[in-house]
């Protein structure tokens, strides 16, 4: 019986990673679900839902040869996952500042205490080696309301980062 797995792939970036992996999966009867694929540093990273009629070992046999041929590491987890389970975030938070250790821990720690459930987080380091800047985008659900999150961000902002919260109004028509 087909089951959902999450396949993680990491390795040095080069062209053709997505095309080769997805072809191998398709040719072996697998379906892809939701996926996140992006370049982090000069590595390419993939996390994708794969529906496979077999077990973890048989899925690894599909993915591993093609991954290893491109110098990539693979990890497979069998998961109790389903499609059409999106949670809609109601706040978007942008954080930026001079890069330093601890920004994510401080900001997300304060937001967690104030009731934020993170749905999506993406961060980047820009600027230069001499003056790096950290930029983070968070989409989340304000389970304890927006004012609690704004209070948390006001405290965080005194520690040298700029943080801005915008409610997400989803227009459904």
């Amino acid at each position: 019986m087909a089951h959902w797995y999450i396949v993680s792939v990491v390795g040095k970036d080069r062209s053709g990673i997505v095309a080769h992996l997805s072809s191998a999966l398709f040719e072996n009867g697998c379906d892809l679900g939701e996926a996140s694929m992006m370049r982090l540093g000069d590595c390419f990273t993939i996390m994708m839902m794969v529906r496979h009629d077999g077990n973890t070992h048989s899925l690894l046999q599909v993915v591993q040869p093609v991954a290893e041929s491109m110098g990539l590491h693979v990890h497979v987890d069998k998961v109790d996952a389903h499609l059409h389970r999106h949670l809609e975030p109601d706040v978007h938070i942008t954080v930026h500042g001079a890069d330093r250790p601890g920004i994510v821990a401080q900001v997300t720690g304060a937001l967690c205490e104030a009731g934020l459930n993170i749905v999506n987080l993406e961060s980047d380091v820009g600027g230069s080696d001499a003056k790096p800047i950290y930029v983070m985008h968070i989409d989340g659900i304000a389970t304890a309301g927006v004012p609690a999150l704004e209070s948390a961000l006001a405290i965080v902002s005194k520690q040298g980062v700029q943080a801005k919260l915008n409610p997400i109004e989803i227009m459904i028509a």
């Binding site: 059409h84 999106h86 809609e88 997400i168 109004e169 989803i170 227009m171 459904i172 028509a173």
Partner: peptide
């Protein structure tokens, strides 16, 4: 920029 959904496109915004 704003986030949109549609009754003709369920489960996606």
């Amino acid at each position: 920029k704003g986030r949109e959904g549609c009754m003709s496109v369920p489960d996606y915004t």
